[in-house]
Design a protein around this nucleic acid. Sequence first.
DNA 1: GGCGTATCTTACTTGCAGGTAAGTTAATTG
DNA 2: CAATTAACTTACCTGCAAGTAAGATACGCC
Lengths: 192, 192
Amino acid sequence: MPRLSNAREQIIERARSLLTERGFDGFSYRDISEHLGIRNAAIHYHFPSKTDLGLALIQDVAQEMLDQIEEARKTLTPAQQLNGYFEYEIQHCAHFDLCPVGALSTSWEVLSDDMRGAVASFWQAVLDWLAEVLEKGRETGEIRFYGEPIDKARLIIAAVSGARQQARIDGGNLVAQVAEQFRREMFAEAEN
Amino acid sequence: MPRLSNAREQIIERARSLLTERGFDGFSYRDISEHLGIRNAAIHYHFPSKTDLGLALIQDVAQEMLDQIEEARKTLTPAQQLNGYFEYEIQHCAHFDLCPVGALSTSWEVLSDDMRGAVASFWQAVLDWLAEVLEKGRETGEIRFYGEPIDKARLIIAAVSGARQQARIDGGNLVAQVAEQFRREMFAEAEN
DNA sequence: GGCGTATCTTACTTGCAGGTAAGTTAATTG
DNA sequence: CAATTAACTTACCTGCAAGTAAGATACGCC
């Protein structure tokens, strides 16, 4: 019997797919173990409770996102960063998968304090990054919007993740449509 | 033993609370029956399967919303209708409950075709209504925005329901903040 | 006053969820 | 090469989920 070379990583990977497909309550250890050809207890070995798995999951998602943000901040202009964020979300929306934060917020009440904290600080980090992008973009004249950067950032993030959620209902790429509308408002000249 | 006078209505009412608190997978018949002081099987009498309950639930939500829309359309100006929508959502956000459509979209994969259809047509009806409000509002000069009414309507609905979702994480009334930003953009003069 | 129907309750079934304990196998290391 | 440890498996547990069947109760109606 050839064991998995990197079981832990494969478990997280599969769990991430399941989380964005069905939400945190929507998958079981069985869904993971059957897919990987291992036993349930093997997952419990790596992640004693589902909370442990959930925590690793959100940390994995956060790390990936924060790495990308860090990289983008160094190499791209504000407008390019905003567009990159849109493109990233459009890609995910094309597969009709949920935003991980959104998937977890549905079961917020039953999440452990650890998980809540991890989700909250991840979400806050993205918000802070986007607010900074907007502020810089306004300074350079690349990006136009009303009000405070933090308020606009909140609106954009809410709209994008809301669109990802509703895309399942609509069946189309709602994030692409929403992003296009934002581009009209923030990059183009006034039409009305 | 005094039976419930209107069990069916009370079951739906309780189920609606639970849906917006925990999502469709997040509550069981037990949660309802214990709260009402009846047996599980009594719920099964009124709603043989959970799908039947879910269908009744979304129809109830939809009817209520459509009634309000119908009323608003007759008596209020476009700007008042848009503001009314914001206020309605702000109220719900204050209790940190989920948008019913959003709560169901998380478990979209496991919903019956009936339920999917009901959710989709409800969501579409709200979208159409808001697009019409925006179009009329632009004609009367009360409301300003870029692009097509339907595109702006999609963005607003996505932002508001996304904000309701994320309010659980943030802990504040994100819908109020998002609505305020929309008002700056759509009702006020340009500041930038 | 008896009869049928609506509205339940009691008492189950099946299935799967998360989780545990103890044993097995294989690689690592002194 | 023996002992330890990591990474599992087999075999279980408890609990709760949805759902069902059959019996009890009450209510309107001829």
